[in-house]
Nucleic acid binder design. Structure first.
Length: 268
DNA sequence: AAGCCTTTGAAGTAG
DNA sequence: CTACTTCAAAGGCTT
């Protein structure tokens, strides 16, 4: 029963036409993640449409509106990618952002624009009034910040490598008896490069569908929405490592090597 | 408790 | 247009 569901879901997933050029071995080849870009002007059936057919629900114009005024009309896709496990050979667990806790959107009230005083509004003169104005301004800013913090964050869809990591992490942990993610990710990075183009293509394709579904569900969303929200280490710390080879990606960038094909000595 | 580490890829920003 | 930056996941470690 379960397996049947798995394979039927897989068939749905694999119903998409493969991107032109994907999985072919003509030389030279562009990087897969570039080659997999869908051609412009070629509408492709999305997972969303697949599951809504023959009664498609038009994608809402505004995410907050959808959350509050209309419950998500999409059929229960939770665990969709766990269902597609068969497709990937063995996706042992959920890999979709769709089922990620961070995306389990609550019933947040859409934030009204905070009452920000117009720049032309000048605080009344006089020390006491000025202090009072400052306090009000601060309170407004604080409440605005609180509202921002309470807003459910829509995360970025996972890219091909992230999907691969999610699938393979448990395997690597079991094999290497490691738990530290930094070390595991290094191993996974090397294994990713060792994959054949066909194997990688599966993940690029899955990632493309993730992005497509994400766009369908959150039409107004942009990666910009989450930009700068995480506190990062200071710029100085980044720059002080000029003598350090750093990650292979950074190292390749530094020495002008091909990011997709070249291995830099110090990072191997 | 918050951020770092570490990876790749997508998408943003800055010049 | 190019180069650089940030964020997705993960969990132990550090501050």
């Amino acid at each position: 029963m379960y397996k049947e569901t798995v394979y039927s879901a897989f068939n749905l997933l694999m119903h998409y036409p493969p991107p032109s050029g994907a999985g072919q071995h003509s030389q030279p080849q562009p990087p897969l993640h570039k080659a997999n870009q869908p051609p412009h002007g070629v509408p492709q059936l999305s997972l969303y449409e697949h599951f809504n057919s023959p009664h498609p629900t038009p994608a809402p114009a505004d995410i907050s509106q959808k959350q509050v005024h209309r419950p998500l009309q999409t059929p229960d896709l939770s665990g969709f990618y766990s269902l597609t496990s068969g497709s990937m050979g063995q996706l042992p667990h959920t890999v979709s952002w769709f089922t990620h806790p961070s995306l389990m959107l609550g019933s947040s009230v859409p934030g009204h624009p905070a009452a920000i005083p117009h720049p032309a509004i000048v605080p009344p003169s006089g020390k006491q009034e000025l202090q009072s104005f400052d306090r009000n301004l601060k309170t407004q800013e604080e409440s605005k910040a609180e509202k921002e913090a309470k807003k459910p964050t829509i995360k970025k869809p996972l890219n091909a490598f992230m999907l691969y990591m999610k699938e393979m992490r448990a395997k690597v942990i079991a094999e290497c008896t490691l738990k530290e993610s930094a070390a595991i990710n290094q191993i996974l990075g090397r294994r990713w490069h060792a994959l054949s183009r066909e194997e990688q293509a599966k993940y690029y394709e899955l990632a493309r569908k993730e992005r497509q579904l994400h766009m369908q569900l959150y039409p107004g969303w942009s990666a910009r929405d989450n930009y700068g929200k995480k506190k990062r280490r200071s710029r100085e710390k980044h720059q002080e490592s000029t003598t350090d080879p750093g990650s292979p990606k950074k190292c390749r960038a530094r020495f002008g090597l091909n990011q997709q094909t070249d291995w830099c000595g110090p990072c191997r």
